[in-house]
Amino acid sequence: MSLVTTSASVWRDIRRPQRLIERSAMVYRRNWIIILSGLFEPMLFLLSIRVGLSQLVGDVEVSGRRIAYDEFVAPGLLAAAAMNGAIFDSTMNIFHKWKASKLYDALLTTPLTAADIAVGEIGWAVLRGTIYATAFLITMAAMGMVESAWVVMAVPVAALIGFTFASLGMAATTFMRSWADFEYVPAATLPLFLFSATFYPVSAYGDWSWVVNLSPLYHGVELVRAANLGVWEAALLAHVAVLVVLGVAGTTVAARRIEKLLLS
């Protein structure tokens, strides 16, 4: 009960999180090339798979339909790109602002609150992830990998994936003591990247396929894939629910930790 009430108080404290996004926009106005170069990597993955691997693999069966391998992988890569972008923004970058430049200490002397900081920083990560996802989607369409017009729904889905992972990443960052702790970040994201039905259908895991449900990224991949195929079913709501719950929990923890550690 008390956890519920304190969590609610975090969300009531949100006033002007958009100021944090304004700040990030100001910073990246000069460094836009960094954002641009981030678009490049997932597109290279896609191109490499299309050029070489597709022919090796042949078609893959999904939802009772046979599609080319590159069309199968593309949604997985899009979801993974949204995750990786969000994680990068919400771990290293946030740790630097927290510990090295003391940005959040300075922000808390203004009318902004800990909740504003958490929501604003996560919001920026979501925004950046959404830009990446949109660019990736345009590339997919240009390469003819799009199956249905519903694929535009992949953009809000990518934003949701970004929200989930930025929240989890920021919450985890509030527990980090030094840069050395960041070694554990790829230790967590690499298995997610590889084992979330990104590169092959869940059926490849046989009896162990239920384990994949434990990966938050898997739920994102399923949603993007459904968007690309234009297959809408009620079961997708469960995937959405998982991502939303994790995201809300992560944001709450992040805001509570900032409050606890910086407002002592």
Partner: peptide, 26 residues
């Protein structure tokens, strides 16, 4: 507030520091 250790925003210029701070105060 002028803190003991300067907490300036190193990613921004001098004038941007002032501008964004103003935005924090709406």
């Amino acid at each position: 507030v002028v803190p003991q250790m300067d907490q300036l925003d190193n990613e921004l210029t001098v004038v941007e520091n002032l501008l964004i701070y103003a935005r924090y105060f709406d």
